[in-house]
Structures are given as C-alpha cells and as structure tokens.
Design a protein around this nucleic acid. Structure first.
Lengths: 336, 336
DNA sequence: ATGCTGCAATGAATCGTTTCATAGCTAGCT
DNA sequence: AGCTAGCTATGAAACGATTCATTGCAGCAT
C-alpha cells in the first residue's frame, strides 16, 4: 500500500470516515475517547492528508502564485520572503515562478496557477498582461502587481517611490554641505532611473547654489560605474563634483573603484558617494557605501495583504495603489 | 458561475464527459468533427482543467519539491533553474521551498510536499533528515540530496568535488611558475573549506620546491579577506607569497582590496590570486578574478534526472552518488 | 411510561477528472 | 443476409476528503 486514506484510518479505529474527518477538522465535536483511537490509528498507518482531494472538495487551493522577473535578484527574493511570511500566518503557501523577464514563461506560470485554482496572483509583469489578468479576475482569481504601477489603475499594485528615494539621496548629500552633485546612471529609459534622477533634481532645485551634473551610463553595472569613476578622477580637481549619487549600488561600487584606483580620490573626504538598493555588497565595499534601501519584504507582505482583502470582498472591490517611501542608510562613504 | 467543468463543456458540445476527456488526452481517438465541437465549447466557456481533480484521479501530482538552504544564494537559484529546465522537459513543475537553514522550515516544506504527493524531493539538508527521508521513501516519494553527500549512502546525491577544485586551483597557480602559495580560508570545520585545502595540498606536494602556507580566517566574508590581504601586504616583500588561493570569492575580493590598498601589491604581477565559486562579482572586481566554477545548473538537472530514474524503477533501486568536477575560470588576476 | 433535548457519530453525496468495459454503427467479407 | 472487425462514443466507477442531514442514544422533565 502506497498511502493510507481516511477510509483505512476509519476502519482501523472502528469509526466512520466522517468521524475521522471531524477529528482532523473539528476536534471539539468528537469525544476524547474516539479522538484517541483515531489519533493512534493515524500514527500507526502514517496517514497524511491528500491535498488534491481537499482542494477538489474545497473548490480552491490554499496557495497563492507569485511570478517574479528574476529570482536571483536579492530584491525579489526578499520580496518573496515577505509574501511567504504573511502567507504562512494565513495558512497559505506561496508558489514562486521565475519568469526571467520572458513573456512566454510568465504566461506559462499564469496558466499553471489558473489550473491550480490559486487564491490569487502576485505579479511583477513583463509584457502587457492586462487582458490576461482580466481573464483571471473573471474566474475569481485576484491579482496584485508588484514593483510596477498599472497604467490603467484597474488593478491593485505595490511599488516604491523612486522619486522620493532620489530626493532623499540628494538631500542627504546637500545636508553634508556638498553643492556640486553629480548623478551617475542610465539608460534614462528605465523608469526607476528617470524617477531617481527627477527626485534628485527636485532636492537640488530647493537649495540655492547647488548644481546637478548628469553623467549618463549605458547600463547599471559595476563596469559602467568604473569608467564613470575613472573619467571623474581624471578631471582637474576643481572641476570634480564634491558628491556623487549613483542610480544603483552596482554603479556606485564601480564608481568607487574608478575613483580610488592608484590612490586617487579620497572617499568621502573629497567626494561623498551614495548608491541605491542597499544590496549586501554595499556594506562590504572598500569604503562601505551609503545607500537607499527599498523595503522589499514589506512590499511582498503588503501585496499579499491587498490580495487577501480583494479575495475576501465578494464584489465591488476598489483597487488600491500603495507606494512605499524608501529608507536612507548612512555608511562611511558619506561620513567625514 | 465561477468556473466551467468538463460536464458543462460536454453539455454545450452535445457529447459525453468521457469524450471531452478524450479530446483533451487522446485526440487521436476522437473524430475531427467532434473534436471541433468540443474545442469551440471549451473556448466559449473558457474551460480550464482543474488540477486538483486530475491529481486526485492520477494519485500523484506532476510536481517535484525542492528545498534549498538559501534562495538568495546565486548557487541555489542557478541550481533551481537547472532542475526546472529539466522538469519542464518532462512536463513537471518544481515547487521551491526556502528553508533558510532552519530545520523547522525544512520540515514544514517536507510536510507540505508529502501532502501534495509530489513525485519526488530534491533537498539540500539542514539537519539530520535521514529518518524523515526514509518515511518519504516508504510512501513512494524518492529523494535526492544536493550539495551534500549522505553519510550512509542509502540515498542518491549530487555534489561537487571540492577536493578536485582545490587541486585545480593550486595546479593553475603552479603552472604559472609560482611556488610560494598561500591558502586563505576558514573555519576549517566547514567541509568545503577543508576539502579545498586538502586538494591544494595535494597539488603542491606533487611539485618539488613548492610550499603551501595556510592563513586561517574566521569566516568566508569580504571583511576577513581584507584583513588577510592587509597582513600580507605589510610583510617584507621577500616573505610574501607569490600566489594566493582563497577559499571563496568573497574572501578573494577582500584579499584583493587588502593587497591593493594605498597602491600596494600588484595583482597578478607580484601576487597571483584565485578564488572559488565564480560568483557574479568575481568578474567585476577591480582586477577580474580567476575562480573555480561549480556547475550549479548541471547539479540541479542531474539531481532531477536521478530522481526521475528512481521514481521510474519500481523497486530494488540502487542509490547513485554523482560528484561533479569543478571548472577553472581564468581571468586577469592570474594572467601576466 | 412518554416525550423532549442535545450531544456523538454516521454515511451518502459531492467536488472534476480520467479510465475502461461496453454499446452502437459502418464497412467489408463470405 | 449474416458475421466480423474496427472505429467512436458512452457513462458509470473511482480517486480521497469534507459536509450535512440524519440516526442513535443517554439524560432529564413531565
């Protein structure tokens, strides 16, 4: 026998299957004596409930689906952890699918979740998924978008306020007395980059005498950052900025390398430096990096929260857009 | 109506439910005309198969469970990708659980997988899971261990040969003509560290005149590496090693920082440096790092392969231990 | 003795799909 | 015409847990 069922347990305990089910789901309805007999039968047979049968009967699974753009990105694994923690508290399981920024894989995961009749779906979308999500909604499966706002506002979403983050980073540099700020980042077509720059611009406009120079990069990588850093180091000292805001931590690490090469510029004394994302390596850089932290886990748990609320309300649900403020993390690269 | 069933499809198409099922599962058994009618009924109703019912009937799910020690670690996310790719080819889904090195969470995921009647389980174990796995096996759920060999050899496993990796790294340094090699790493209680050191020792013993100095560290972090690097830089030039093998890339990055600080030692000219793991940051270091790469994705796909084989063979299965050779990746830190 | 109340336990029905033995039908052969 | 072979299509049974209307029974009041 591969696996015991309630029937086997009932037979061994000398009770009906209904009673076994009651022991499992409403123990207060069953006498202590019977409960004992059933329990020992369960133990003896090594009975484990069959989830498929429970789901079939219940008409809905107790899992929710999460599709992320890149499972290897710490931002998303933290987000997933946040969602999982919240789900566990609700006795739900999170199934994580990695779309790898591929529309085909994204779609395959949505199919799978639909077949599994999940309670709901959290999604950081690749392509235009609105029609697909409307289909899910018609089937009674709610969706919450993470890390990307919807265009049409008909779905709930949770994201981070990159504008505020940019403003926060620049304001921090200004508060140190720095006035010649440089923004290193690109391409500007990435919404996050554009928002962070716009935020920085706003903070600088508010301070008389402060200037913002934009140094465009091709990508958000360490390498791009390094060449930006080197080009700054090679300038005459008077023409260098006295503070740099990099669009993410990878860039910032590269900038740092470029500046310090051959005993070059002193960070933070000559140039203060701040990044964005607060990845693990930020704290481990040659000069520990200040950064802007995104509440990744909180995003995940909040998204799940919205999902549960939407699932609970029968109809007439009002989609909600949540935007979180980022957090400033100060380290050596902007101190002294 | 929340969701259409085969019955609804059958009614609309004017056929029996058995026929609908045949259209879905053995189209060749059904006439073209009927197939057409059924298909259009499916489309009109937006019918999606209920996975729970299929699983119940089939007696087994079409997913396999994977429990990893740390979902944020690139090694494991690559491993998961490898397993997923292989599973997709077999029309299976991988459910990924993150134990976060916590025995409780590990156990909870194993419970869940057991309830879901998964086809099998891939596991990088935290504690002593052998009794638990024997329970799963009795239930007909095979297990394959990843990244850790079993003590008792009664389960299949897939791991990497750290001994060979250490030997490979040291042999590479020796092939550059270096003879005064230093191993930076610790604590020695970690199996991987001990094996890598033992491998390096073996390579060095084979070359006359080569010596191996062991520089112990407290942990495998950038910080530990940095202090090791600084202590080496502060030695008189004649007493410095001419090559360093760091037990992992984080250490190596730290060592590199320690050596190069204040325009210190030239890498690779004065000291060649090699790390281990080939993490993404290795290539992005100030001096791109040579490293030993582990075939993470291959480990995942192989583990799944073993699992499938074990699941297929009714009984009398012979557990298999697969150990992969690591791969040498040469970059600037050991060239010139 | 009778009726009533309330608690325990029962077991048939249900969820949606797949399977399989069976029935209906056509075509081909004798 | 009678028979067989070969297709299609049918529909009831099965998977395992849960639910709920029902039964059985003990205790209590009349």
């Amino acid at each position: 026998m591969v696996s015991a069922s309630v029937k086997d347990v009932a037979a061994l305990a000398g009770v009906s299957v209904g009673t076994v089910s009651n022991v499992l789901n409403r123990p207060e309805k069953v006498s202590a004596e019977v409960t004992g007999r059933v329990q020992s039968a369960i133990d003896k047979l090594g009975f484990v409930r069959n989830d498929a049968a429970r789901q079939l009967r219940a008409g809905m699974s107790h899992s929710i689906g999460l599709v992320v753009l890149d499972a290897a990105n710490p931002f998303f694994s933290d987000l997933a952890r946040g969602a999982e923690d919240r789900a566990t508290a609700e006795n739900l399981t999170v199934l994580v699918g990695n779309s790898n920024e591929d529309e085909g894989r994204e779609s395959a995961y949505l199919d799978l979740f639909e077949q599994q009749r999940v309670r709901g779906v959290l999604l950081s979308p690749v392509g235009n998924v609105v029609p697909r999500l409307e289909q899910l909604r018609r089937r009674g499966i709610p969706t919450v978008l993470v890390d990307r706002q919807t265009e049409n506002m008909s779905f709930s979403s949770v994201a981070v306020d990159d504008l505020a983050g940019g403003e926060m980073a620049a304001a921090h540099l200004l508060s140190l007395g720095r006035r010649r700020i440089a923004f290193v980042g690109g391409p500007a077509s990435i919404r996050q980059v554009a928002d962070r720059l716009a935020g920085a611009q706003k903070a600088i406009d508010a301070v008389a005498g402060a200037t913002l120079e934009v140094i465009a990069t091709e990508s958000l990588t360490v390498l791009s950052g390094r060449s930006a850093g080197e080009s700054i180091r090679s300038r005459p000292e008077a023409e260098r900025p006295d503070a740099i805001f990099a669009a993410n931590d990878l860039l910032a690490i590269g900038v740092l390398q470029g500046l310090m090469l051959m005993g070059g510029v002193n960070v933070p004394k000559e140039i203060a430096l701040i990044g964005y994302d607060d990845i693990e390596f930020a704290a481990a850089a040659v000069v520990p990096l200040s950064s802007i932290r995104q509440p990744s886990a909180l995003i995940g748990s909040t998204a799940l929260e919205l999902l549960l609320r939407e699932a609970a309300s029968e109809d007439g649900f009002e989609p909600t857009q949540v935007i979180f403020p980022p957090e400033l993390i100060v380290r050596a690269s902007t101190q002294g």
